[in-house]
Amino acid sequence: MSEVRWWPATQGDVFSLRIRELRTEQLGRRLDILIAGCGRGGRIDLERVETRVTGIDEDLPVLRAALEHRADLDARFLGDLRDAPLLPRTFDVVHAAFLLERVRHTELVLDRMVNALRPGGLLLIRMRDRASAYGFCDRLLPGWFRRLLWPRFAPEGTVGPLPAIYEQVASREGIHSYCLMRGLMIAEDYSGTSGPALRGPHARLARVACKAVARLSGDRLPATRDEITLVIRKPQNHFARLI
């Protein structure tokens, strides 16, 4: 595994910068990009970069409604992500924003996305950390209660509430183990705070709840971060253990 750059928080638009660097490596040819979790948003600044963008997500009413306002996708698929039409070595970049914590069979979905990456391609991940106070509260609350609280706590216009599954891979330890087993190289690893309830009308109350969980857990579930951002590269080496 390559040396990992650890920063306390995402600084600037890291994903857009890495995509531009990849385009330079590819001598300026068109990049094929997969947006996994396109219904929630997760737009990337791709100005001055020639791309073909495909979006995939689960087929949920709230996601279908959000997709109606997206004009930046050249193709899209809504349905079971285990059955998404992803051909091997089709994409230069896979961008998965806040998807892994809300889907079941997460490793299988990840395997399909990695398989769809070309050698040397980038897997760009943002996800909510199950091993944080915010992630603990999100996955602990019953679905009906989350639906009740969502319009009161989430910023206006935020897509949701979406399922809160949080399988083991939706954590720093889990995703690092996954990459190690698949021969993927984590180049950059960032922590941040971006939970919707921490930015909504009752952000102070949400912060108090997270601090209480952190204190009760002996800080094993920190309240100071809830997001993980990763830049992961699929090796060029054909003898590496790849999907």
Rank of each mutant, 00 (worst) to 15 (best):
R48L: 09
Q11R: 15
R220G: 01
I232Q: 08
P151R: 07
R199V: 00
P163C: 04
L230F: 10
E101L: 02
D226W: 07
I125N: 02
R130L: 12
L67R: 07
G183N: 02
R204V: 13
L46Q: 00
L100Y: 02
L180C: 11
L78Y: 01
V4Y: 05
L140T: 14
A214K: 09
S194Y: 10
G143H: 00
T229M: 04
G195L: 10
E227V: 11
Y134V: 15
G121P: 01
I165V: 15
A71Q: 13
L100W: 08
G200T: 05
R220K: 11
W150H: 05
R104V: 14
I243N: 15
I243H: 12
L81C: 14
G121V: 08
R102C: 03
Q26K: 15
A131Q: 15
S16G: 02
E167I: 13
H95E: 04
T193C: 06
I232H: 10
R48F: 08
M181D: 11
V109W: 01
R207E: 10
A131Y: 15
R82E: 13
R76L: 11
D80E: 10
S177N: 14
R172D: 10
G200M: 06
L81P: 12
D74L: 03
A214P: 09
E101D: 08
R233V: 04
V49H: 01
D32T: 14
G28K: 00
A209K: 06
R220A: 04
D74Q: 04
V231I: 01
